[in-house]
Every structure is written in C-alpha cells, then in structure tokens.
Amino acid sequence: MSALRTLIVLAAGGMVLTAPVQAKPQSATPAASRTIVENAAALPDLSTLVAAVKAAGLVNTLNGAGPFTVFAPTNAAFDALPAGTVDTLLKPANKQQLTSVLTYHVVAGRVTAADLARQITAGGGTATLTTVQGAQLKASLSGSNVILTDAAGGTATVTTADVPQSNGVVHVINKVLMPAA
C-alpha cells in the first residue's frame, strides 16, 4: 500500500458547523497557505497527532499535494484512549498498526462541512466515507453536529470544521476513531 493510500483523511463536509474557538497566539493560528502537517505542528492541541504522523512516516504524504480531508483528533482525544495505547502505537514495532489508525482519519479529496451535510441528506441521514486506509466511516448529524462512527461503533464529534490547508481541509474531532481489528 502506498504512503498516499495509508493517509487517513477524515472528511466532515456538507454542513457549516460552528464551535467555540479559543483565541490562540498568532504563531499558533493555522494558515491556509501551509500544509496539513505544517499547520498541525503549529497547534499545541494537536501535538500527539503530529508525533504519531512522524512515527508512522506519514509527514511527506500529508505535506504532499493532496487534497486530503483529515479528521484530526486532539490531544485530549488521544488521552482518552485506554492507558498505554498511545505509547504502544508509537513503538517502531507497531508502525503498521499506527499507520492504519492514522489513515483511518483521512479521506481523499477536499470535503467541506457543507459537502458532508449534502451527502448525509442525500443518504437519508447517513453518509459513508471511504478512508485512505480503505475502510469506511459513517457520518450523520446530531442537531448541528457532524458525528463520525467507526467500525467498532465508537463515535467522534466534529468540534471545529473547515480549517483550510494548502493541500486540503482539516476537521478537528474529539475522539480517536479505530478501524476494525
């Protein structure tokens, strides 16, 4: 599987979502002229994701032309995993498993919140997203929130939608999604 196929781009498009956003210092503000990895590295709340992307060897891919849609779990999302999960995934011996988890958060193409809302409506309340990892995520709405459901039935909520990148779009999520074992 190529590095491009192993990227996880999580798509949350179709509906314009609003979420409270705390002011960040100018240096930590994402810039539409930077890539997904460059912007993520500038945001302290995505440092665990950046460390995982580096450990999986996906930096060059996510810095590539794309476009990609990434559903980016926050540090708190990684912290909510069972004790030891992140440390285990970051070990070199588990690079393939880490890559699978990360690429499960990536969808090829630029999928905005409005795009995803249209897909959910057209799908009768659910949209199916095929990730770069090759498996599927389900997207639905709960009120005005986009909810992603993984293979195990776990759910994540898009907390910040439509963060523009030079090579795609990022939607910040509150949980880590897990592909089928």
Results as ranks from 00 to 15, higher is better:
47 S>W: 10
54 K>P: 08
80 A>Q: 10
102 L>P: 13
54 K>M: 01
75 N>A: 07
157 T>L: 04
156 A>V: 01
181 A>N: 06
127 A>R: 06
5 R>E: 15
33 S>M: 02
99 T>K: 08
7 L>G: 15
53 V>Q: 01
2 S>G: 07
135 A>W: 09
28 A>D: 15
168 G>P: 12
48 T>H: 02
176 V>L: 02
113 A>P: 12
90 L>T: 14
147 I>F: 01
70 V>F: 12
88 T>M: 07
82 P>W: 05
7 L>W: 06
134 G>P: 01
108 A>L: 11
10 L>Q: 14
55 A>N: 03
105 H>T: 03
9 V>G: 13
158 V>S: 07
39 N>W: 02
87 D>M: 00
105 H>C: 08
114 A>I: 07
132 V>L: 11
146 V>C: 03
167 N>G: 05
146 V>T: 13
130 T>P: 03
81 L>N: 12
27 S>K: 11
144 S>F: 11
97 Q>L: 14
179 P>H: 09
76 A>T: 15
91 K>C: 05
67 P>L: 12
132 V>G: 12
140 S>K: 12
13 G>P: 06
79 D>S: 04
79 D>A: 13
154 G>V: 01
95 K>A: 07
2 S>P: 13
38 E>Y: 09
93 A>K: 12
181 A>D: 15
99 T>N: 08
176 V>N: 05
167 N>I: 08
93 A>F: 09
61 T>L: 06
32 A>N: 08
